[in-house]
Amino acid sequence: MFAEERKAKILEMINSGNSVRVSELSRLFNVSEATIRRDLIELEQAGCIVRTHGGAVSKTSTNFEPSFKEKQDKFLKEKEQIAKKAASLIEDGDTVTIDSGTTTQFISKYLNAKGVTVVTNSVNLADELSDREDVEVIVTGGLLRTKTKAMVGPVAEETLKKLKVDKLFLGANGISIKSGVTTPNIVEANTKRVMIEGAKEVFLLIDSSKFDEVNFSLICPVSKIDYIVTDKLPKDYEKYEYLGIKFILT
């Protein structure tokens, strides 16, 4: 079988709604796992699929959720610059909630404000801030999701409901005018909604690849966001501005 024919069959399998694994494809097509990985890389570069740890899924799957590790290295430069800009928005004495995520985790690296109280559901962020004597850290507790390193669920939400903060720095997997701010997991979406309810101002931190992406679970309508901190304006940015959302570019 020629490489193009093999890739076409792999794509057909994925688009039929199945996730695939490298080891299974290797056996099915009787080629090495290295060859299958190369096929999947080429399909991803062509915009046809999304590679996962050990396999691939359809790019159009709304409930696909990459792991923290899988997301960590993507758009790394953009994420760090977005977090740096977000950290500059935190002022001395602020109370802030910082959501768990591969972008928000960098805020601790650039946080220069003094006397700040940080509420977070991120185990990574809490650990990174634990040596800062000038920052008070409140950890929400809750169910720890190994996939995203976020603490979510009723315990986290009860903590968040008791606290009112000046600013929320929120993460998400997708945003669109029509479908709102979304993420793959229902429980995590609900915890994020509680964060929004307790904040005076909501800053959504997303790199430009997240615009027009739609995931399974709605966090909130776009109108609930006050600011979007990102690396590039979306093509329909005027529609966001019409809703009163301000863009902060890195």
Rank of each mutant, 00 (worst) to 15 (best):
K71G: 11
K74D: 14
L76A: 15
K77C: 11
K79G: 04
K79A: 05
E80G: 12
Q81P: 08
A83Q: 09
K84L: 09
K84E: 14
A86N: 02
A87R: 08
S88L: 09
S88T: 10
L89K: 13
I90H: 04
I90S: 06
G93V: 04
G93I: 03
D94H: 03
D94S: 05
T97V: 14
I98V: 11
D99N: 08
G101L: 04
T102L: 12
T103A: 09
T104G: 03
F106V: 08
S108H: 12
K109T: 14
Y110F: 15
Y110T: 09
L111N: 04
N112K: 14
A113M: 09
V118D: 00
V119M: 05
T120I: 00
T120S: 02
V123L: 10
V123D: 02
N124R: 13
N124E: 13
A126Y: 05
D127C: 14
E128Y: 10
L129C: 02
L129Y: 02
L129G: 01
S130A: 12
S130W: 00
R132L: 05
V135F: 01
V135T: 07
E136H: 15
V137D: 06
V137H: 06
V137P: 07
V139S: 13
T140L: 07
G141H: 12
G142Q: 09
G142D: 08
R145P: 11
T148A: 10
M151G: 08
M151D: 08
V152I: 15
G153V: 09
G153D: 08
P154T: 12
P154Y: 13
V155Q: 15
V155Y: 15
A156L: 03
A156F: 04
E158P: 05
E158N: 14
E158I: 13
E158G: 09
E158C: 12
T159P: 00
L160I: 12
K161D: 12
K164L: 13
D166F: 04
K167A: 08
L168P: 03
F169D: 00
L170T: 00
N173W: 08
N173V: 06
G174L: 00
G174P: 05
I177W: 01
K178E: 14
G180R: 00
G180M: 01
V181F: 03
V181Y: 02
T182W: 01
P184W: 10
P184R: 11
I186N: 14
I186G: 11
V187D: 11
E188N: 06
A189S: 10
N190E: 15
N190A: 14
K192S: 00
R193W: 03
R193Y: 05
M195K: 07
I196G: 02
E197N: 13
E197H: 09
G198A: 08
K200I: 09
K200S: 14
K200W: 10
K200Y: 12
K200G: 09
F203G: 06
F203S: 06
F203V: 07
L204E: 03
L204D: 03
L204H: 01
L204V: 04
L204N: 03
I206M: 07
S208R: 11
K210P: 11
F211D: 10
D212K: 12
E213Q: 15
V214E: 10
N215K: 15
S217L: 07
S217N: 08
S217D: 06
S217K: 07
L218A: 08
